[in-house]
Every structure is written in structure tokens, then in C-alpha cells.
């Protein structure tokens, strides 16, 4: 499922050095659990995003292993320390091998 996958991320545009900011991420994905059945009674195969990572200038902030029990359109909220001006890289790994990425820059004044 590589269609209609759109990551949305909320990151502050600027911060003071060492500030801890709350980051919110949302990605549109149906997260098919592999438990549901279609109208003919066949199991719909599992198709989920199984991993999400957030890095800042190459240093890891959070790494989440995701299972089918994560809801449709996975949402995450977490805290990140911003030591310097740089870029947040958000990466989602799909079961089908697709990788979705979003980059947001933050300026430290």
C-alpha cells in the first residue's frame, strides 16, 4: 500500500539551544491488521507500518517497533532535545518495503 501515504509532522521552527520540544507526527495509512475478513470471508493480509524512527542530525530521538495493534493513521507524540540548528528526519518503514520520509529543519537562535 504505497498510495495516499502522507506524513504530517509538527515541529517548532525555532528553539533555544537545549530546549525540549514536543513533536507530533501523523501518517495516513490503513494499517491492515491481518485479522479482518472481507465480504467473502477471506482474511485480508496484513499490511502495516512496522517501524518509525526520528533522528536529529543523525542522532536518534526515538525508535518505535509497531505491531498490528497500532491504530489506522499512526499518531505519535514524544519529546526531543534540540541541541543546535539542524534537521529532524522522520522515517516510517512499511511492510511492503516502502520507506516514507519527512525532513523538518529547526533553527536555534
Amino acid at each position: 500500500m504505497a498510495e495516499n501515504v502522507k506524513p504530517r509532522v509538527r515541529v517548532p521552527r525555532s528553539a533555544s539551544a537545549g530546549e525540549v520540544a514536543t513533536i507530533k507526527t501523523l501518517i495516513s495509512h490503513k494499517m491492515e491488521s491481518g485479522q479482518r475478513k472481507d465480504s467473502e470471508g477471506n482474511t485480508i493480509p496484513r499490511s502495516i507500518i512496522n517501524r518509525f524512527t526520528c533522528d536529529f542530525n543523525g542522532q536518534n530521538v526515538i525508535d518505535v517497533t509497531m505491531e498490528p495493534a497500532i491504530s489506522t493513521n499512526p499518531y505519535f507524540e514524544f519529546e526531543a532535545t534540540i541541541p543546535e540548528t539542524g534537521e529532524f528526519t522522520f522515517t516510517w518503514y512499511d511492510d511492503d518495503g516502502s520507506v516514507y520520509e519527512d525532513v523538518q529543519s529547526v533553527e536555534v537562535s
Binding site: 536529529f56 542522532q59 518505535v64 495493534a69 507524540e77 526531543a80 541541541p83
Partner: peptide, 27 residues
């Protein structure tokens, strides 16, 4: 009580501001 009990595992890296995370899950 889910058919498959694992939900998620959060690993906090060196730049995590706090060991805290929120998400939405299926029950």
C-alpha cells in the same frame, strides 16, 4: 486481550527529551 498481544515498543535515543510517548492503539 488482543489476538496478538504486542502493541509497540518505544526505544528512546540519546536526544529523547523525556522517556514519554503517546499514540493510539486498537483494543
Amino acid at each position: 486481550g488482543n489476538p496478538t498481544p504486542p502493541v509497540a515498543t518505544f526505544h528512546f535515543g540519546p536526544l529523547a527529551g523525556a522517556s514519554r510517548a503517546s499514540t493510539r492503539i486498537r483494543l
